[in-house]
Design a protein around this nucleic acid. Structure first.
Length: 283
DNA sequence: GGCCAGGAGAAAA
DNA sequence: TTTTCTCATGGC
């Protein structure tokens, strides 16, 4: 008998939108419209039906211990989205379109590797590479609807891979970055546990000591693993929507980032997700 | 066949 | 210091 935990459905939660918002690469849609994902070495499925959200494979204790945090359930997205909608008509449309998005609190090490792979890449290929890495170097953790799922490998597990092995996972020229970063993390030259306790500015400096991590990737890691809602990652999609809708004069990434932080404020990271999701589905 | 994808790093200016 | 080139790879 499979464990299930049920809560009331809400407008500010859509597993389809969360899974498709580019912040996570570990969720797959099932034929019945439910989604299955892996996080922190655990398997979960989410199904929204009628007026309820079913978390399949977990019980109330699992929910309180991990998944409530993972889905950022204690943050008031109704209030935040209402606040952001008042900014302007563009953001209002984006929020209405993606109102079920939440910012996931994901594993720091997994985000480090995932967003190293993301550079100059596209989401389907990023997802595929992470899947292969998990199959080869992670652990089998379960099966759902006939699909097998594997945990994302720890630094120790991934350190078994050579540069050539990593290349064979489909990460391209980023193989060396991942290899070098794994060494730096494993030896605690860059200590990920300490990064969790640092201020945002300190954490950014530490993250950028890793290979393949610049400002944009660091922003994504801070936003999607550390809960830093006041970061604003600028990728090619976000740059496009800001230049088009907000008439930015300077088109370099640093200027756009500065403008967005000042304009969207403390929760600019959440605004960024609404905009990213909107532009990717309208153009 | 060039352009693009949740860019970073090295070389050149 | 800032700008330009290169990187692997598949889809279009």
């Amino acid at each position: 008998m499979e464990k299930v935990y049920v809560i009331k459905k809400m407008n500010e939660f859509s597993i389809q939108q969360i899974a498709g918002s580019g912040q996570t690469f570990r969720w797959n849609e099932n034929e019945d419209g439910s989604f299955t994902g892996v996080a922190f070495g655990k398997l979960i499925s989410v199904r929204e039906k009628d007026d309820k959200i079913y978390f399949i494979g977990i019980d109330e204790r699992d929910y309180n211990d991990l998944w409530k945090m993972y889905f950022d359930m204690e943050r008031d997205y109704k209030e935040i989205s209402a606040h952001l909608q008042k900014k302007d008509q563009h953001l209002k449309k984006a929020v209405e379109f993606g109102k079920g998005i939440r910012i996931l609190r994901q594993d720091l090490w997994e985000m480090v590797v995932s967003f190293i792979i993301s550079g100059n890449n596209n989401i389907p290929r990023i997802k595929k590479a992470i899947e292969v890495i998990s199959e080869k170097y992670g652990e089998f953790i379960g099966e759902f609807n006939g699909n097998k799922y594997h945990s994302f490998p720890s630094p120790e597990q991934l350190s078994l891979a050579t540069i050539e092995d990593l290349r064979a996972c489909g990460v391209g020229y980023r193989d060396k970055y991942i290899f070098e970063t794994t060494k730096l993390v494993l030896t605690k030259t860059v200590d990920l546990e300490k990064i969790q306790k640092m201020t945002m500015e300190e954490a950014r400096i530490e993250l950028k000591k890793l290979a393949g991590i610049g400002d944009k990737v660091a922003d994504c890691i801070l936003l999607f693993a550390c809960g830093e809602m006041s970061t604003f990652p600028v990728d090619t999609w976000v740059k496009k929507i800001l230049v088009r809708y907000y008439k930015i004069k300077e088109t370099d990434t640093k200027s756009i980032n500065k403008f967005a932080i000042e304009y969207f404020g403390e929760v600019c990271g959440i605004a960024q997700q609404y905009l990213f999701y909107y532009i990717r589905n309208h153009d």
